[in-house]
């Protein structure tokens, strides 16, 4: 029985090898070798230049902002959904997941239309006689787009974790004299920590590496690390530097994944 089950993972292992292991080997190959085939560290030296670190820093900053806002939106919502009746929960999940059925480029484009100078937002604001906002084509627009796009990835793990907490545990806390705030602080949050952490990873990592959202909503004025990697691969044709930058970015991501696995008790 056990043997058979192991074999079931075959397609997944093949997938991992073809689309994760082999590409990473190719990345290493390009990052450590120049055109003449010599092994070199030059591209890594190039990758850690201030101009690239500046873009990396901005990416980290924007994705942190996105992650924090997503968590602040998702956790209370998950608590709300927990207290709802069964039928309404399904409804809420559908509302959250529904937009994901649309192509994400289309969803980001609609934010372009909302935030631009003569966009929907400014039209509404002017009707209400409120001051116009100039959020289009800026870092603000990028963060808004990221939050919108990645919120479901935060909500779903957090929601699952919150739902797994037994009602009896909470009742017991109340019986022992805990206030609502104490229950939230000492019972709910610690018990839902694995969900929170996997939500943070699932939002932070794609936000850190995005280049499409920053291109479309930043008006080409904001360059994140993803955009630099894209420029090196597509327009500058410097695959070596692009590969070195990708590996540099991985250095940021891998510790995050290891940390979250440990917190969740590992796989």
């Amino acid at each position: 029985m056990k043997d058979r089950k192991t074999w079931l993972s075959g397609p997944y292992i093949l997938w991992i090898i073809l689309f994760t292991v082999v590409p990473v080997i190719i990345l290493f190959y390009y990052a450590f070798q120049d055109d003449a085939g010599r092994v070199t560290l030059d591209f890594f030296k190039g990758a850690v230049r201030p101009i690239h670190l500046k873009a990396l820093w901005l990416s980290v900053l924007l994705s942190l902002m996105c992650t924090v806002v997503c968590l602040l939106l998702a956790y209370p919502l998950a608590l709300c959904m927990r207290s709802l009746k069964m039928g309404k929960k399904g409804m809420m999940i559908a509302i959250v997941i529904g937009p994901m059925w649309m192509n994400y480029v289309l969803r980001i484009m609609s934010w372009q239309l909302i935030l631009s100078q003569n966009g929907v937002l400014n039209k509404v604001l002017s009707v209400l006689h409120l001051p116009r906002q100039d959020w289009g084509n800026s870092a603000t627009a990028i963060v808004i787009g990221m939050i919108y796009d990645y919120l479901p990835f935060m909500l779903l793990p957090v929601y699952n974790a919150v739902m797994d907490i037994g009602e009896d545990v909470i009742e017991a806390a109340h019986d022992l004299g805990a206030s609502k705030a104490t229950v939230l602080r000492k019972v709910m949050i610690p018990l839902s920590k694995p969900g929170i952490i996997s939500g943070i990873t699932m939002v932070f990592i794609p936000a850190l590496t995005t280049f499409a959202i920053s291109d479309m909503l930043g008006g080409g004025k904001v360059m994140l690390i993803g955009n630099i990697i894209e420029q090196e691969f597509i327009s500058s044709m410097n695959w070596h530097l692009g590969a070195a930058l990708s590996l540099l970015l991985m250095l940021f991501i891998i510790p995050g994944i290891i940390f979250s696995n440990e917190e969740e008790g590992g796989f």
Partner: peptide, 8 residues
């Protein structure tokens, strides 16, 4: 180009 774009 990178220098121009990274500039905030």
């Amino acid at each position: 180009w990178k220098e121009l774009k990274v500039l905030q």
